Simulated scan of single mutants.
Amino acid sequence: MPNYSTSTEIDATPEAVWTVLSDVEHMPEWTPSMTSVEIIDGPNPPDVGTQVRIEQPKMRLAIWLVDEWDPPRHFAWISEAAGVTTQAEHLVEPLPEGRSRVTLAITQTGGLAWLLGGLTRGRTRQYVNAELGGLKARVKP
């Protein structure tokens, strides 16, 4: 069960949404929740097994491993640190009339997940909401 999940509808096809969402190295251009995204091992666009270095404001540098990649509908990546595994999911669903629903979810597991989740809950929600809002503003129909 996600620690936090939110969705929005976008007036664009899943393919148009996926084009923006899957270009992970350009995420900092459209979301203030990321200052730097760099593929450090694997193909671009990513695939299962690709490692990505992500810098975010007020957070430690993290290495994320793409563990699910299903264009143009879904990708997820995981990061492990200090007894916590964090998974971030990105789901794009088709809607009638060429529209899409995008859902972003964060799930934390592990022995210290309760502690880290409690300490970062507000920032996590703020960053997920910023990513979703930035994606919606960036995608062109």
Rank of each mutant, 00 (worst) to 15 (best):
L21F: 00
S22L: 08
S22Y: 07
S22K: 12
V24T: 02
V24Q: 08
V24G: 06
V24Y: 02
E25L: 00
E25W: 05
E25I: 01
H26A: 12
H26T: 04
H26C: 04
H26W: 01
H26D: 06
H26N: 11
H26Y: 12
M27T: 02
M27S: 09
M27P: 03
M27L: 13
P28Y: 03
E29K: 13
E29N: 03
W30R: 02
W30N: 06
W30F: 07
T31F: 01
T31M: 09
T31I: 01
T31Q: 04
T31G: 00
P32L: 07
S33T: 04
S33M: 03
S33P: 01
S33H: 03
S33Q: 07
S33Y: 01
S33K: 15
M34L: 01
M34F: 00
T35L: 05
T35A: 08
T35I: 02
T35G: 09
S36W: 06
S36F: 10
S36Y: 04
S36Q: 14
S36N: 14
S36D: 09
V37L: 07
V37R: 13
V37W: 12
V37A: 14
V37N: 01
E38P: 04
E38M: 11
E38A: 15
E38T: 15
I39E: 12
I39A: 04
I40D: 04
I40S: 10
D41G: 06
D41K: 15
D41A: 08
G42W: 13
G42C: 08
G42D: 07
G42E: 13
G42Y: 10
P43T: 01
P43D: 08
P43S: 10
P43L: 06
N44A: 08
N44Q: 15
N44C: 06
N44R: 15
N44W: 02
P45R: 09
P45H: 06
P46G: 10
P46C: 13
P46T: 05
D47T: 12
D47K: 14
V48Y: 05
V48Q: 09
V48L: 14
G49R: 10
G49L: 02
G49H: 12
G49A: 04
G49T: 03
G49K: 08
T50H: 14
T50M: 13
T50F: 14
T50N: 14
T50R: 13
Q51M: 12
Q51L: 15
Q51N: 14
Q51H: 14
V52N: 07
V52L: 12
V52F: 00
V52H: 05
R53H: 07
R53P: 05
R53A: 15
R53S: 13
R53I: 02
R53Q: 13
I54L: 12
I54H: 03
E55P: 02
E55T: 14
E55R: 15
E55K: 10
E55A: 13
Q56F: 05
Q56W: 01
Q56I: 01
Q56C: 14
